[in-house]
């Protein structure tokens, strides 16, 4: 492999738990290899140094304040390539649950008498503010997918985003369908790539990766009703992860 100047990369946290960045830091064996290929200049969760000179920006979290809107716009101006990391960044994630209420109510419920000091706007995925070049889905992202994406990015191959529903990953894992087990899930319309980890360990798919490109949401609404969910239950199932289902 010929020598080349390592591109500078930066990691940023917006409204999120920073769990996706932790998923990257957990790829411990691969980290030395990654650092041979990119120079990390900004990563709040992993280092003290800060620089605003970078080509690749990894952004975790949704945008939920005016300040964040300004900050994400600035990052876009500086970076050549922006990667949305995880459900909050790609779909808005769980943070969008608050969008069901007026913002004043949300502030009061969470912060009580200090509500007046809080500034907030409805949560949204970062691509509702800036252009995003690539999305790594999931809550949290999968380390395995990050490493595959990293190799593609540095080698100049087009990274591939899975565009098939979780049912595929479930069948690959040999799972019994959760509907057979008397539970409900949104796997049939949700983007896979997660190895159906939630179902494999006895839970259901909550839809953290958002919809596939062409989901048959009407069909799924009918299925959920046929298996006994009310219209309200159906809406709650389908809308848990974010208003925008990339």
């Amino acid at each position: 492999m010929r020598d080349f100047e390592r591109p500078k990369a930066a990691f940023f946290s917006f409204t999120s738990c920073e769990g996706c960045q932790l998923a990257i830091l957990s790829c411990e064996e691969a980290l030395p290899e990654i650092l041979k290929r990119i120079e990390v200049v900004n990563f709040r969760e992993a280092m003290s140094e800060r620089s605003d000179d970078y080509k690749i920006a990894f952004i975790e979290g949704s945008v939920s304040t005016e300040e964040e809107i300004a900050r994400v716009t600035k990052i876009r101006e500086r970076a050549d390539f922006v990667v949305a990391l995880g459900a909050c960044a790609t779909t808005g994630g769980l943070n969008c649950l608050k969008n069901r209420f007026p913002m004043d109510d949300v502030k009061r419920i969470v912060y009580g008498k200090d509500a007046g000091q809080i500034e907030t706007v409805p949560a949204r995925p970062i691509d509702s503010v800036i252009k995003v070049d690539y999305r790594l889905h999931g809550c949290p992202i999968s380390g395995k997918e990050f490493l595959a994406f990293f190799a593609d990015l540095v080698m100049g191959r087009s990274p591939r985003t899975p565009n098939y529903p979780v049912c595929v990953d479930c069948k690959m894992a040999g799972n019994i369908c959760v509907f057979e087990k008397g539970m409900y899930c949104v796997g049939p319309v949700t983007r896979a790539g997660c190895d159906a980890i939630c179902v494999t360990y006895g839970s259901v798919c909550w839809g953290c990766r958002g919809y596939v490109d062409d989901p048959n949401v009407n069909a799924h609404r009918e299925t959920l009703k046929r298996y006994g969910l009310t219209a309200k239950g159906v809406a709650q199932k389908l809308d848990l992860y974010g208003g925008k289902k990339q």
């Binding site: 691969a30 041979k36 490493l147 190799a151 049912c167 069948k171 062409d214 048959n216 069909a219 799924h220």
Partner: peptide, 25 residues
């Protein structure tokens, strides 16, 4: 849905994809 379950549970569906996966090194 286009969920592929019929393909994946079928004992005679044999289509496959082939990809090259490169490690982080």
């Amino acid at each position: 849905y286009g969920c592929g379950s019929c393909n994946n549970v079928c004992p005679t569906c044999y289509c496959f994809d082939v990809r090259d996966e490169v490690r982080a090194n």
